[in-house]
Design a protein around this nucleic acid. Structure first.
Lengths: 198, 198
DNA sequence: ATAGCTTCCGAACGATCGGTTGCTATATTC
DNA sequence: GAATATAGCAACCGATCGTTCGGAAGCTAT
């Protein structure tokens, strides 16, 4: 019924699958993302969907990668390219809050959901998630260290501790937004941030 | 093969099911908890398991309730009955940290996992989870308000903001413990707490 | 024109899902 | 001791899971 598409269209089909897969996974979880559901949503056969990846795990990895690209596009790439150090750290956190506030994905922050879903398992999917999380936290740490080096933060600042607190602010933001639908949460997050990196 | 048991044994069987179900759900999630898996683990038939609840959703609710009882036993009931206010608030948070540190359930904090799993759905299971979360946060708020009233916290303290920050500390603790297996996380949590309600 | 490559479909696979049905064996009640 | 109630089992239901297979359809290179 559906013959071969040109190379450009083929890539486009793959992108359609991954995009829709990310939307589903952000709501139902990476395990709740099923081939059949994906095929139905896209008006394709299950074989047609799986043909692009071969395996559900590969598809999950593609979705995680897509989520990482979305996050990169929506957060770090929106950080203006001003001076490094405290200003950049602040801008990164503000972009982070705005990203959660904007409800970019229908199911809240994909990485928060995926991390808690896979945090007690093994395998490449868990590793990919943990890796993305680690990269972002490393970037935070770098700017925090620069801020200390610039004298913008106290010299005895525990950078690891600061990143821990920043992550907590974001996890709480996601929690209060998604579970309690608390519209005051972003303001709370910003207040916590200004207390941490004023 | 397995005939009727005495009333006492019957209750015990139900408890065995719910206990094992909680253990599974804390690792695989509430949806990953399947009747067949539960039956196999317990050496029972699926009908024998489901007979106690009638429906998977009822079973999930029973597991959520059991998780709430475990949490109650492991956290608030371990808080010494000293004076209310800041001292009690501190004790509650310390018990909370110790609970996460102790790895009471194999998959980390059950409510954190369940909350992120169900935060974008509807239905009674989600409501039960959100309700349990709300009760604990209300208890925190009560003690925080008392602490303000006692003059143990600044009079202009934003109690909602404080609870937001405390929840963030705990979510971060669970995150760093489970995903990054960072043994320094409990110490970080305690340091954050002493900064908030030191 | 033709051969090859690739995308996608239709169909089927074994396994497992939540759930139902009929039965047996026993505990409880009379 | 007879009657009743019920925990649990074996078997099965239709649906769906991830995955495989053969072939149809069309692009591309010869």
């Amino acid at each position: 019924m559906s013959p071969r598409k040109s190379v450009a269209e083929t890539r486009l089909t793959r992108r359609r699958i991954v995009d829709r897969g990310l939307a589903i996974a952000s709501m139902e979880g990476l395990e709740g993302l099923t081939i059949g559901r994906l095929a139905t949503d896209l008006g394709m056969s299950k074989a047609g969907v799986l043909g692009h990846f071969g395996t559900k795990e590969t598809l999950q990895l593609a979705v995680v990668d897509e989520a990482a690209q979305v996050f990169t596009r929506e957060v770090p790439e929106r950080v203006p390219g001003g001076p490094t150090g405290l200003a950049r750290l602040r801008a990164m956190c503000e972009a982070w809050v705005a990203y959660l506030e904007r409800h970019v994905l229908p199911g809240g922050c994909f990485f928060t959901a995926a991390a808690t879903e896979f945090d007690d398992r093994g395998g490449p999917v868990r590793d990919a998630i943990a890796g993305m999380s680690a990269v972002w936290q490393r970037d935070l740490r770098i700017q925090a260290r620069l801020a200390v080096h610039n004298g913008e933060l106290p010299a005895d600042t525990d950078v690891g501790q600061l990143v821990y607190d920043l992550v907590g602010v974001m996890l709480a933001l996601n929690h209060f937004l998604q579970l309690q639908c608390d519209p005051a949460a972003p303001e709370r997050a910003r207040r916590s941030l200004s207390r941490l990196i004023g």
